[in-house]
Write a protein that binds this DNA or RNA. Structure first.
Length: 321
DNA sequence: AACTCAAACAACCGCAAAAAT
DNA sequence: AATTTTTGCGGTTGTTTGAGT
């Protein structure tokens, strides 16, 4: 990948120094990243302005902090947002609004910036498609009564499929913890390992002393350390409320049921809990092709471990008290 | 092959709160 | 107690990339 250069083209890249402070701005170079990682590894984080100076980085402390927290920190988890994470983001956003850092606390490894980006690029896009405000009651109801139940359906379907598969293959490949070798390359700019036959993307600090640079990675493949397992593992101590959510949303009429004339008349739909479709929001629009939550577009097959989710639900209840 | 457009995301900014002096 | 510095948060912007035409 080419070096991204903010404010100038790659070809015309010149280090972008702030006018009178001799400070660099724009994308971080690999050298800068390594300098920051090495310094923090030795001296720890905090006091970012003096850290930047001491490390010899011509960056503001603010910039160093951001780079570390959002990108270089060992426990930053990268890659696609899973279905369960999507569900959790929707749920938590409905509770707390744009309090990204608070939401991020419940998605270990995810940064507030990443969640915010997800919300803006995915969720707000759909609000735009539906021609309604992302903060409007109707859009929120669309999420709660249509998209979230559908997400739950897909999560449950995936869980069912996974359990079926694991049963039929119990004495076979996966349970035998087959060792697989994958071709991988290290992307210097992004500082992440991209594994070809998987979705795994790793931060250098996660790479356990792997040499920077292209390498062959041999990993012991078990369900627990697949991308699926990685998700659940990250919740080892901080658990997710997804099972509670899935239980809850299972009781919410799904999009099909919700609109079945035998249960609810069309006029009822029009005057749905918040007048969901009374202001030009069209069900067919909501259900139209291209809605990833409904259609299953950007799905990952990963599943969270649902065993400990009660705990986080309790945490959430405490938070709302 | 060239172009356009939208998605994704890294990074910046301003502001407010917290901590240090 | 007042002032300065640092930290954290949310909003926004700009670049790259990939898909579609």
């Amino acid at each position: 990948m080419d070096v991204k250069v903010r404010g100038s083209t790659s070809a015309a890249f010149q280090p972008d120094f702030a006018d009178d402070h001799d400070l660099r701005r724009g994308p971080w170079t690999v050298d800068e990243d390594l300098t920051l990682i090495n310094y923090i590894t030795t001296h720890g984080e905090g006091r970012w302005n003096s850290l930047a100076r001491s490390a010899g980085l011509k960056r503001t402390g603010k910039s160093c902090r951001l780079r570390w927290l959002n990108y270089l920190r060992p426990d930053v988890r990268r890659g696609n947002i899973t279905l369960e994470e999507q569900l959790l983001i929707l749920e938590l956003h409905s509770r707390w609004g744009n309090r990204w850092s608070k939401i991020a606390q419940y998605l270990p490894g995810r940064t507030d910036n990443e969640i915010k980006n997800y919300w803006r690029t995915r969720v707000q896009k759909h609000a735009k498609q539906l021609k309604c405000d992302v903060n409007s009651k109707q859009f929120k109801d669309t999420m709660r009564y249509l998209w979230m139940p559908r997400l739950v359906e897909r999560i449950q379907a995936a869980a069912t499929a996974a359990s079926t598969a694991s049963t039929t293959a119990s004495s076979q490949t996966l349970s035998a913890a087959t060792t697989v070798t994958t071709n991988s390359t290290y992307n210097h700019y992004n500082n992440k390992m991209e594994v070809e036959n998987g979705n795994m993307m790793m931060n250098p600090a996660i790479m356990n002393n792997n040499e920077f640079g292209g390498s062959q990675v041999t990993q012991s493949y078990t369900p627990e350390n697949s991308s699926t397992g990685a998700s659940s593992e990250s919740f080892g101590t901080q658990v997710s409320p997804v099972s509670e959510l899935t239980d809850y949303y299972s009781t919410v009429p799904n999009s099909q049921d919700y609109y079945q004339p035998s249960q609810i008349s069309y006029s009822d739909c029009i005057t749905s809990p918040s007048g969901l479709y009374s202001q030009g929001l069209d069900y067919s629009q909501v259900m139209e092709a291209g809605n990833p939550w409904i259609q299953g577009g950007d799905t990952l097959d990963s599943l969270w471990n649902v065993e400990n989710m009660m705990f986080l639900q309790q945490q959430l209840n405490i938070d709302t008290m």
